[in-house]
Design a protein around this nucleic acid. Structure first.
Lengths: 226, 226
DNA sequence: CCTGTAAATGGACACCTGTCCGATTATAGC
DNA sequence: GCTATAATCGGACAGGTGTCCATTTACAGG
């Protein structure tokens, strides 16, 4: 049930000691407890103290590993992120491969929207914590540095940026500020914003998708086929 | 210094008692103290307890009036909001009047960007609190209902929506989901997002403005003059 | 002036986050 | 097995938020 980052536990681990066995067990228990409590009561209703208690560890231990609830959520969301990344990659390599870049972007956004709406509770907590702490970088837990793992937001930013860049090169869209545009598009799928869309405005999934498509795909495209 | 909502203190106040004099004085002291402390140490560094103490009132009194720091910030930001609204209105009535709707929208966005960047600290706290509490409606303090006062976000949403609607009617832009588009455009100027743009990305004021213009003004417009 | 009543007050309280540090325990080298 | 050592543990603690409620106080009407 609990997805764990596959530890670099090769015996031949060169200079650095491998994670102590009890520590590893505790991390498992923490993740399992958090997942259970979150599922039971909702992310925002569960305190770090409760998690520590349910996992049978002290608060200090919990905070040593996860500096705040957001970090803990990141660890839990990690597997979901990877699944999503794989799904997007495989789509881009198969069905998406024959589409022009802006249509590929549309496909990515559609999948991203679904992904965010599904994992909303976890992602919201992550975003909230980051904004609150002013880190704002969506970077990953430095205590868990799986080699070569891309940071979530950076990865999405690069992906959207690449698609935009390709579209510019092909002349499908006019030249633009790629980095800023990618940021703006991704922000339109911010978990907190979608939460507001759902509660405050009552926008449906389809309506959001269509709105995004009109604004960012058709809006940017030079050749409008109307 | 402290801008106060002009109380409905007409003697002929029909059924409802007017605010007690001591309560009014306390509110003044609270606002003054908050403004002073915020200016001195930054919004996020000042606790509600400190504010209460500096104002010479108990925490209970403070919370009775302002349910949380966000509400207090809203009260302080109220005058700024009104100033901004007046500035936009007068521009729309004078220089803006001769421009097509999408150019008027560009002017509004430019002013909004400046406004948000200026009052960032206060607005960020407001947005953060709202998201945290899940209220997400940006509505005003129900304890202070100045008659006829528009809610800030609703007002902006309506303004942007009107401009978009006019542009559609004139055929300047293709028909679209006006409400959703207005929400999305406004979200691109979210205080928290701009904070991230500044810190995490280093985007300048001008770069943001140009990016927004390309995306939302030129992107939506039918007749592109390139 | 006196009195009833509802609004206003303020500090104790419950709970939460995040830090700190002495005590504990796993591991490496002998 | 034994020891040195550093990672790890866990609960106390320092703040902060927001609630509660017994007490106080301003205002209106007799």
């Amino acid at each position: 049930m609990v997805q764990d980052t596959p530890e670099p536990r090769s015996i031949s681990s060169p200079a650095q000691r491998r994670e102590r066995r009890d520590a590893a067990a505790h991390r498992q228990r923490i993740l399992a407890a958090a997942q259970r409590l979150f599922a039971m009561h909702g992310v925002s209703q569960v305190s770090m103290h409760q998690i520590a208690q349910a996992a049978g560890v002290g608060q200090g231990t919990l905070y040593r590993r996860y500096a705040n609830k957001g970090e803990l959520c990141k660890a839990l969301a990690h597997a979901q992120h990877e699944t999503f990344a794989k799904e997007v990659h495989s789509w881009l390599a198969s069905d998406g491969a024959i589409l022009p870049p802006m249509e590929r972007l549309a496909g990515v956004l559609e999948r991203l929207l679904r992904f965010v709406l599904d994992g909303a509770a976890l992602l919201e907590e992550i975003a909230l914590t980051e904004f609150r702490n002013g880190t704002c970088d969506m970077s990953c837990d430095p205590a868990e540095p799986p080699p070569g793992q891309e940071q979530w937001l950076d990865w999405m930013h690069a992906l959207v940026g690449d698609l935009l860049g390709e579209a510019v090169t092909r002349g499908d869209i006019a030249p633009l500020d790629i980095s800023f545009t990618a940021d703006t598009i991704l922000n339109a799928l911010n978990p907190m914003l979608l939460h507001f869309y759902h509660l405050g405005r009552g926008y449906t999934h389809e309506r959001i998708l269509q709105g995004l498509r009109h604004l960012y795909i058709e809006g940017l495209s030079e050749r409008k086929d109307r």
